[in-house]
Design a protein around this nucleic acid. Sequence first.
DNA 1: GTTTATGCAAAACATTTGCATAGTC
DNA 2: GACTATGCAAATGTTTTGCATAAAC
Lengths: 146, 146
Amino acid sequence: MATAVLDTLDAQGLRMTGPRRALVEALVERQEAFTAEELMQAVPAVGRATVFRTIKLLVDSGLVCRMSQVDGRPLYSLSHQGHHHHALCQRCGAVLDIYRCGIDTMLENIELATGAKVLGHRLEVFVLCPACVAAADESPPAKQLA
Amino acid sequence: MATAVLDTLDAQGLRMTGPRRALVEALVERQEAFTAEELMQAVPAVGRATVFRTIKLLVDSGLVCRMSQVDGRPLYSLSHQGHHHHALCQRCGAVLDIYRCGIDTMLENIELATGAKVLGHRLEVFVLCPACVAAADESPPAKQLA
DNA sequence: GTTTATGCAAAACATTTGCATAGTC
DNA sequence: GACTATGCAAATGTTTTGCATAAAC
């Protein structure tokens, strides 16, 4: 599982070091979105600087995507494939991928309506995931990513 | 022009102080998006803390909307009406409002496809505005919000 | 006169960087 | 052995906070 990610790094000519291995394994293990701080807590042996450097490296490699939370702070998750968007569950922290979002049509309409040329976009959707919709009535929120 | 904004603050029981007036006027004067820092530079007489406090207050009042730049840093602009999105020109900093974006249909589809309940969303579109599309071939980028 | 807002300076955060050391290839 | 990555600690940049003062209602 983590191997695929590590292979990609290898293919990019990056060195396979202990810290990188440990960070990638931590990410794969918890199939969830994470903040830089959470990742530092998950792998305390690795220094802050390396965590930030590695996150940046993974984002640049396209292996991790950066999203933003409601308050604007950055959140990351392993990127699964191609261009897509995310729905962040506000209760449990789950991240749902959205592939067929129909945004391309939307962007075309924007170009037509405004005359602007679309260079890129970012869409964040804040949701309650199905499990949390079901659970929301019974138990209190358990939002805890750490 | 600035009056409408000030009236809204007044209606919310907030005091009409010199600094607030000055900040709101600065915002209205430059009909453009701004960062906290730019606003501080525009009204140097007002202290940092007050600038941040006032921005927050305006965002909470719905008078200003917070968006994010490509790098994730926050950008603000006077909000014109209702729910809408923004297209940020990457060359000149212009902000185009997008009202009829068709995103509601998209969100409904997301709910159907994933079973999640959509609580909210944020869409940022990064563009070249029409003027910049025209100018891009001739002159070099002049991105300068300050 | 009471309550709220301001300014300043300091604190709190999050992220980045310089540089010597250690690890990979 | 050459080059890259790491760790630490310090620097950076931005936003927040405490508290005494000043302004608004």
